[in-house]
Computed example of a mutant assay.
Amino acid sequence: MRILVTGTAGFVGAALTERLLARGDEVLGIDNHNDYYDPSLKEARLARFASHPNYTHLRADLADAAAVNRAFEEFKPQRVVNLAAQAGVRYSLKNPQVYVQSNLVGFVNVLEACRHGNVEHLVYASSSSVYGANRKLPFAVEDAVDHPVSLYAATKKANELMAHTYSHLYGLPTTGLRFFTVYGPWGRPDMSPILFADRIVRGEAIDVFNYGNHSRDFTYIDDIVEGVIRTLDHVARPDPAYDPLLPNTGTSNAPYRVYNIGNDQPVQLMRFIELLEQNLGRTVEKRLLPMQPGDVPDTWADVSALRRDVGYAPNTSIEVGVKRFAEWYRDYHHVES
C-alpha cells in the first residue's frame, strides 16, 4: 500500500516506518524536525531507513496546509498514520500555543487532506493523558474523559472529537489509539526512561514525583508498532450495535473507533528505576517529591477492545524491555560497562 506517516523522525513514527517498509509498503514520511529535543536523535532514527527505495521524506510542518495538501495530491496515499504532534505534559504548561498549532491546526489539515484525498483509513495518535482526573482503573475506552489535567491532554481529546466529526460528516474511517507510556530503544529523551538513565550513568540523584507512588502502564515499542499496524489494516466501520440512547464512547454509527494501546500490566515507577539500575550497573539516590501539575498518579490500559478487534497481544515483559532499552542506551551513548 501507499501509506503516509507523519512524525517519521519521531520515536514511534520511525519504528513504524521501518516495519511498513520491511513488509513492502511505500511510505511518504512528513516531519518538521523541530528542536523540542535534540534533532540529532531524529536524524539518527531517519538514517536507519531514509535511503530505502520505497521511502520518501518531506520536511514540512502539518500547520502548513498548502504543504500538507500538496503532499497528499502528489503521493495519493491509500492510508494515513498521524503520529506527529507536540508531545509532553509539562511542556504544555509553558508553551501552550505550540500545542494549538501542531495538535489542533495540524490535525485539521490532515483531516481535510484525508477527506479530499479519499483516504481509506486514518489512524492517529491519541494519549492515555485524556483520562486526566479519572481514578477508576484500568482505564477503559467506555469511560468518560471529560476532565483533562493538561492542555496536551485536552488537545488529544479534541483530536478524537474532530476525527468523529469527519467520520460522521464525510464517511472518513478514523481510528484513534490512546498510547500508554511507550518506551524502548530510540525513545524520546524528554521521557522518564532516558531522563533516568542519564542520571544513573552520571551518578546523579533521580527526582521521583508523587513520593514514588506512581505506576505506569509501560509499553514496549515493538508491541506498540504491532498494534498500530494491525489497526491500520483493520479499517474502522460503523458499529452495528451502537445505541445513541446508550452511547459507547469508543465506537459510533459512523466509521469511527478509539482504542487503548498499552501493555495492560502497570508497573511501579520505583520498580522501573530498579531495573534500569540493574541493567546499567549502578545505583543512585532517589529524591522523593510531590506530584507535578498535569501529572496523574497511575495509568493502566484496558486493551480488551483492541484484543477483540485486531488480535492485539503485547508480549514484552518489563524485564525484557528494560534490558533491551539499556543495551541500546549503552551503545548509542557509548557508555562503558
Results as ranks from 00 to 15, higher is better:
S40C: 10
V81I: 13
V335H: 00
A60D: 09
L41N: 03
L177Y: 09
I3D: 04
G132V: 09
R115A: 11
D25I: 08
G184M: 05
E18A: 12
D302F: 01
I229L: 08
L169G: 07
L269W: 12
E43P: 00
L269N: 07
G311H: 09
V98E: 15
E274D: 07
E204W: 03
S167P: 00
G171R: 05
Y329F: 03
F180E: 11
D38W: 05
E26D: 08
Y91W: 15
R307H: 14
F272V: 01
R2M: 15
G10Q: 10
A113L: 03
Y256H: 09
A305R: 04
T6A: 13
P314E: 13
E277D: 06
L62Q: 00
V108H: 02
E336S: 00
Y99E: 15
V98C: 12
T17C: 05
L93P: 00
N54H: 08
E74S: 08
F179Q: 03
K42R: 11
V303I: 04
Y220V: 03
V310G: 03
V5P: 00
D264M: 11
E26I: 12
Y91S: 14
V145F: 10
L104F: 12
D243F: 05
R216L: 10
T299H: 05
R282K: 11
T181K: 05
V335L: 01
V235A: 05
T56E: 13
A326H: 03
F49T: 02
F49Q: 04
F49R: 02
P293I: 09
C114K: 04
H214Q: 10
H57K: 06
R188E: 13
R237M: 09
I261N: 06
N263P: 00
A15W: 02
V208F: 13
H234A: 11
R188T: 09
Y124M: 04
Q101F: 11
V145Y: 10
V228C: 08
H164L: 14
S317W: 10
R216S: 03
H57M: 14
P189K: 08
V98L: 15
P297D: 15
G132D: 11
H52I: 10
R287Y: 13
G187M: 07
A144P: 01
Y242E: 03
A66F: 12
V228F: 07
P297L: 15
R324L: 11
A153V: 07
E142I: 01
Y256I: 07
L280R: 02
L83K: 00
S167C: 10
L137Q: 03
L195I: 01
A241D: 05
L83H: 02
T219F: 08
W186R: 00
N248H: 06
V284F: 09
D298P: 06
F218P: 01
Q86P: 01
